[in-house]
Simulated assay, not measured.
Amino acid sequence: MSSKHPSLFEPVTVGAWALPHRVVMAPLTRNRAPGQVPTPLMATYYAQRAHPRDGASLIIAEATPVCPEGHGYADTPGIHTPEQVQAWRAVTDAVHAAGGHIVLQLWHVGRISHVSLQPGGQPPVAPSAIRAQAKTYVIETTADGRRVGRFVDVSEPRALRLDELPGIVEAYRQAALNARTAGFDGVEVHAANGYLLDQFLRRGSNQRTDAYGGSIENRARLLREVMQAVTGAIGGERVGIRLSPVTPVNDAHDDEPQPLFEYVVRMLAPLGLAYVHLIEGQTGGPRDYQQGAQPFDYAALRRAYRDAGGTGAWMVNNGYDRALAEQALANGADLVAFGRPFISNPDLTRRLREGLPLNPLQRETLYGGGAEGYTDYPFAAP
């Protein structure tokens, strides 16, 4: 690091990448990939946000399923077919031509899915056959041929068999290799927000009695195996992970998150990761949200990672503005990820640096659709 208390706009080396500043674009699901294949419009969207000074120093592309069963929302792109890999290449080429860095978030939704989105209309898979109190996004075709999106309750899942878990690990490993073939600078493993890897971690969704349930060590076993496979495939210096210790989204809950996630970060420390991406509080909601009897101690979590030898950058996320971001860096963070502000402000870093006003967000165009509310947000005047 260039100073004891670095500025948000100072350069930093993170894993394999020399980044021009510390403003990161968080992954944002936009449901604009019909047929689960990236589009040319997506290349425009990401390239707009890739300027090395005015845009994101690092773009974390939207959550992308690693296998057909990993899909849980309509029109989200995958990374498990040759067609998807080739289409993503146009996105990464556009970002690199603009001078940016981009990594792909690897995703398996687990039980947060609907039978209409699963191969053969089968039930979604999960650690245990417990239906989440959550909704997902599907698109239906009307009588006059229009595609209309709506949110529906997720379907009841089935529990994964023990002999299926190696296939899950292999899907992540192959997806990481596919991402590199598609031109991504690396990957982020999505282990947050109540999706499959997070479901295994938490008692509320994992009631298994085999080697993948019960104790913290057992519940973290699948995550350990996935992270070892992914880092073994492409190198830890090109791998990040996203965690959300206390978020309740997608019916995620555990009554003892502090020991659980301190175990997780100590487990991750030897892998030489590029970064750990931490969502503080409720995803997209209150930063002071807590689960369990005591407020979550994020400083203790970072100490547990560092004390175990973890060298990856510490990235924080959730509701940050410039002042909060600078304070986080003073308190030991290395990077700050911004989500929705990057949707409506492709030049967010310039606006933060110069104190310029932000474009308002069009919430009605967040999910699905085309260019409106996607690639038509204006840049600040020169």
Score class of each variant (00 low, 15 high):
M1T: 13
V12W: 15
T13I: 14
H21G: 13
A26E: 04
L28D: 09
R32I: 02
Q36P: 00
P40D: 03
T44C: 05
G55Y: 03
G55N: 07
S57H: 04
I60D: 02
V66L: 06
Y73A: 11
A74C: 00
T76K: 06
A87R: 13
R89Y: 03
I102P: 01
L104D: 07
S116L: 12
P123Y: 01
R131A: 13
T136N: 07
T136M: 13
Y137F: 15
V138K: 09
A143G: 02
G145S: 01
V152Q: 12
S155R: 13
S155H: 09
E156R: 14
L162W: 11
L162D: 15
E164D: 10
L165S: 00
P166N: 09
P166V: 08
V169K: 06
R173A: 09
N178R: 06
R180G: 00
A182S: 13
G183H: 01
D185A: 11
A191R: 03
A192D: 07
G194N: 05
D198G: 06
D198H: 15
D198N: 15
D198M: 10
Q199V: 01
F200T: 07
R208C: 05
Y212A: 10
G213S: 08
R219Y: 04
R219C: 02
R221P: 10
R221G: 03
E225W: 14
E225H: 13
V230L: 10
G232E: 09
G232S: 05
I234S: 12
E237I: 11
V239R: 08
I241A: 08
R242F: 07
T247G: 13
H253V: 09
H253C: 08
D255S: 14
P257C: 10
F261N: 06
E262L: 11
L268N: 10
L271Q: 11
L273T: 04
L273A: 01
H277N: 15
L278H: 02
Q282I: 00
Y289W: 15
A293P: 04
P295Q: 02
F296G: 01
D297R: 11
D297C: 11
Y298L: 02
L301F: 07
D307M: 02
V316G: 00
N317D: 14
L324Q: 08
Q327V: 01
A328T: 07
L329V: 02
A330W: 00
G332M: 01
L335Q: 06
V336G: 03
G339Y: 08
R340E: 01
P341K: 01
F342S: 07
P346L: 02
R351L: 09
G355D: 07
G355E: 07
N359E: 05
R363T: 13
T375M: 10
T375Y: 04
T375F: 12
P378C: 00
